[in-house]
Simulated assay, not measured.
Amino acid sequence: MKTRDLAYVALFAAIVAVLGLLPPVPVPGIPVPITAQTLGVMLAGSVLGARRGGLALLVFLAVVAVGAPVLSGGRGGLGVFVGPTAGYLYSWPVAAFVIGWLTQLTWRRFNLAWALVANLVGGVVVIYAIGVPFTSLYADVPLWTSFTGSLAFVPGDVVKAVAASVVAVAVRRAYPVIELPGRRATAG
């Protein structure tokens, strides 16, 4: 991995941390708050691609694990990996990877619609598919209750997916130096 790639990974890990400075919004009756950090997950995947986007979130989670209070609400440390929000944290590198992979697959026709599909699949479906069962397990509630409770987050996550898609398309057009695998120019 090149130095530039490492810088991008660190930058997006920092972006997710900065988004954690925004206070969490508690949802009555649900142990998982609404945060802005999933916007960073979506941005990392759709701007950096699969490998670097996933790695950025792994770096972020390593920073959380060593105790840095970079999660929304100033949380950090190993304890956050065994609570009701743990599954959502575990999903972040996977989600960034999936978003990046879908972005790379659609690069030649990458536009706002494809970016939105990638962010909705990776940033909503993947995150919920991993997060909801963990919430059910750690909060000791039925899976169906955890699933229906998570529906309160869908409107905000769709707004974040739209915002991440708009930013990703703009960044791609304005700053094409962030290369994705398979996109390198070839001599013709």
Rank of each mutant, 00 (worst) to 15 (best):
69 P>R: 14
143 L>I: 12
48 L>T: 09
2 K>W: 00
164 A>N: 12
79 G>Y: 15
42 M>I: 07
15 I>A: 14
155 P>K: 01
155 P>Y: 01
28 P>W: 00
95 A>W: 01
119 N>I: 11
101 W>T: 07
109 R>A: 07
168 A>Y: 10
103 T>M: 09
150 S>N: 15
125 V>P: 06
67 G>Y: 15
14 A>Q: 09
42 M>V: 06
177 V>T: 07
153 F>G: 05
120 L>S: 05
158 V>T: 04
188 G>E: 02
28 P>R: 01
45 G>A: 14
87 G>R: 06
114 W>N: 11
157 D>G: 11
118 A>F: 10
96 A>F: 15
72 S>I: 05
28 P>D: 02
70 V>Y: 00
33 P>D: 05
15 I>Q: 03
18 V>W: 02
173 R>M: 11
94 V>A: 13
175 Y>I: 09
73 G>W: 02
70 V>C: 02
94 V>G: 08
88 Y>V: 10
172 R>I: 09
11 L>Y: 03
160 K>W: 13
81 F>H: 10
23 P>N: 04
156 G>S: 03
36 A>N: 05
14 A>W: 04
52 R>E: 05
27 V>T: 06
43 L>F: 14
36 A>G: 11
98 V>M: 11
188 G>R: 03
31 P>L: 08
110 F>D: 00
180 L>R: 13
33 P>S: 05
146 S>T: 06
96 A>I: 12
38 T>C: 10
55 L>D: 01
59 V>S: 13
95 A>D: 09
159 V>E: 10
134 F>W: 15
58 L>P: 09
114 W>E: 04
162 V>Q: 10
153 F>L: 10
146 S>K: 10
50 A>N: 02
15 I>D: 05
106 T>K: 01
94 V>E: 09
127 I>E: 13
148 T>A: 01
52 R>I: 06
183 R>H: 07
18 V>E: 04
63 V>N: 13
170 A>V: 04
169 V>L: 12
135 T>M: 15
186 T>G: 04
9 V>C: 08
120 L>V: 15
130 I>Y: 06
120 L>A: 11
150 S>V: 09
31 P>V: 08
116 L>D: 07
174 A>C: 03
162 V>F: 14
58 L>V: 15
40 G>K: 02
66 V>C: 13
111 N>C: 12
132 V>D: 11
111 N>H: 06
132 V>Q: 08
30 I>Y: 15
59 V>I: 15
124 V>S: 03
176 P>D: 03
88 Y>M: 12
83 G>K: 14
166 V>N: 12
125 V>Y: 14
171 V>M: 13
54 G>V: 09
159 V>K: 00
45 G>N: 12
9 V>D: 10
19 L>T: 13
116 L>A: 14
110 F>R: 04
174 A>T: 08
40 G>S: 12
187 A>C: 00
116 L>R: 07
68 A>D: 11
76 G>M: 11
85 T>M: 03
101 W>N: 08
1 M>F: 04
30 I>C: 02
121 V>E: 14
5 D>Y: 01
109 R>Y: 06
166 V>T: 10
148 T>E: 07
169 V>H: 02
142 P>G: 05
69 P>H: 13
26 P>S: 02
168 A>C: 04
125 V>E: 14
17 A>W: 00
93 P>A: 06
158 V>C: 06
35 T>A: 09
36 A>P: 07
130 I>F: 12
120 L>F: 15
42 M>S: 12
12 F>V: 00
151 L>A: 05
